[in-house]
Design a protein around this nucleic acid. Structure first.
Lengths: 247, 247
DNA sequence: CGTTAAATTGAAGATCGTCAACCAAGGTGG
DNA sequence: CCACCTTGGTTGACGATCTTCAATTTAACG
């Protein structure tokens, strides 16, 4: 018997999976049944520590979460931002431990999915297994786009790009209100995601504001000109794999 | 009946998988049987184009291959380098098309694995399926480390880091001779991998040479001081998941 | 030998980081 | 109710890293 909230937890994940392939009602209920419990954590909490042995994976129900790695001199790099409905460390099921940590950027609600339940799925639900595998690969595609950003985009474009990405990812799960969305994270977080300093992120946000493309203030991102912002970022949503597979 | 060379093609992949978990002889032969044919390509050849529908995946038998993405102004970013034994686009099996391209950096020999064969594996070989899934996740871990490099490491460290990574990845498949290994790619390729300009890569290689850490010349990387090089790069091989899972 | 791709070097400049100060908002306790 | 503190945001001056542009050398190969 799945705990209260399991249906809601799975709902947003299903939205994303169903953009790519059919998920039967049976499969959906198997997913719901894989949830052991639902837990809340405050902002700043480290949910998974680098190197720790894992026995369950985390499905994000609400809030924002980041995967990050640290360097010696206190430098931090966020490798991926997660939104509601993301299977934040499904890859931990395969890897058994992670080479990065995971922390809550805001207060979060998460669903705990034991690895044993995932193994059961792989034993009896080949199609659902492929869908879960696919979801880890959509994740990897986002990472590749981040590599491109960090390697070859200018600072303004990087900042513009993260915002565009979050806009699209939040939109499909219904968390965008017209042209604005809640993004209750700090400029320091944005800096860690874009590989810049907080000071420079601040300036780039100022520039985007002056260009009437975007205002990010008080945890709200307000996009004034989506086409313009996407052009500034050289943003092409293809890497999000949000449209049906072409065959 | 697997084609000639299938055994060799699978051998190096098995080496890597077996660092993490047991692979039975039966599973190994299933993998060999999944190979449809073996093909050679010259250096520079584009093996997979961004966006093209895919019906098979590529296992690299010999040579060096890169995944890359382009930006408008002719800027190129390599998201990952591949060595012999890498399942270069296994993720294409799930995604059905890629958001990046793949090209041969050197002459290559590749094995073609039809997606139908992979589906058959997922239907009847749950454990092997998990191992293949794992292999795509080890891949993603390498991408995350690249994100860290591009976001937070200095130019010297980035260059040093790629070399360290390739050293370790090549070592486990027996392609390192003592302290040196063949890396027949250009400084332009290194620049595309590290998010730098070829000019600056050249200077950083010069610096590493002056510091008696590394000489890269004529397609051969010669490491003079591995510990020193790794320290310069803040390199920690944990992300390669080459040791047994701790439980 | 001539031709081409790759590597190397120098000079100049842009982007981004560092350091440091200051401001704004929100919460806390006296 | 308001001083105080903390966190996050903003701004300016300066400097380092890396890029750009351009020329030159080296190596590989027919």
């Amino acid at each position: 018997m799945p705990p209260d909230g399991a249906a809601e937890a799975i709902a947003r994940l299903l939205v994303k999976l169903r953009l790519r392939d059919r998920v039967t009602e049976h499969e959906a209920s198997v997913l719901r049944g894989a949830i052991d419990r639902i837990v809340d954590h405050p902002a700043g909490q480290v949910l998974v520590s680098e190197g720790a042995p894992l026995t369950f994976s985390i499905l994000l129900i609400d809030g924002f979460v980041a995967r990050f790695k640290d360097l010696a001199e206190g430098q931090r790099q966020i490798t991926e931002l997660h939104v509601a409905g993301d299977f934040v460390d499904l890859h931990g099921y395969l890897l058994k431990r992670l080479e990065h940590s995971i922390c809550a950027l805001t207060p979060v609600r998460i669903a705990i999915v034991p690895h044993a339940a995932l193994t059961a799925i792989t034993e009896s639900e080949p199609h659902l297994t492929r869908m879960l595998w696919l979801s880890t690969q959509m994740d990897a595609a986002i990472q590749r786009e981040r590599i491109l950003s960090l390697g070859r985009r200018t600072a303004v474009a990087r900042v513009a790009h993260v915002i565009c990405e979050l806009f699209h990812r939040l939109k499909i799960i219904g968390m965008v209100d017209g042209t604005s969305f809640a993004l209750p994270i700090t400029q320091v977080d944005l800096a860690d995601a874009t590989g810049l300093t907080p000071v420079h992120v601040n300036r780039m946000l100022g520039r985007l504001r002056n260009e009437r493309l975007l205002t990010f203030r008080g945890g709200i991102a307000q996009i004034h000109d989506l086409a313009g912002l996407e052009e500034r970022a050289e943003f092409d949503p293809a890497y999000l794999f949000m449209s049906a597979a072409r065959r």
